[in-house]
Amino acid sequence: MPGRLSVVDVERCVDCLLCAFACSRRFGEGGVARSAIAVRSVGGMERGFVVVVCRACSDPPCAAACPVGAIRKAGVGVRVDLEKCIGCGMCVQACPIGAVFWDEERGKPVICVHCGLCASFCPHGVLAFQEVAGG
């Protein structure tokens, strides 16, 4: 069943970063080098956090900005064709919420594919993976 990752209650976020680590574990590695989700503080940890991740736009600006058509809209979110991608970074510039991350080693974008793995490792109910009707 296709689903969409949602940030349901950011006030519950404790900055444990388990979501970002889960994302990189998709590739069986530690760290956050290839994570498509990040947590940042809002001017000091006491003021809370923002969770930055693709919100699966209905008309994604990253796809529109790609000069070689490497980013196409999927059922939920987008998919990047890394073969086609020329690593120009236009998608990073285009995303107003900063949800296009960058794999420094490969020089390619990293965008959430809404697999929901991070939500299953969010211990405090910040993230949820919700089924999408019709896919």
Partner: peptide, 16 residues
């Protein structure tokens, strides 16, 4: 007012 965690820890024992 808020709980915080160290990076990598689900417990969030830090209480503000």
């Amino acid at each position: 007012g808020r709980r915080l965690a160290c990076a990598g820890c689900p417990v969030a024992c830090i209480h503000l």
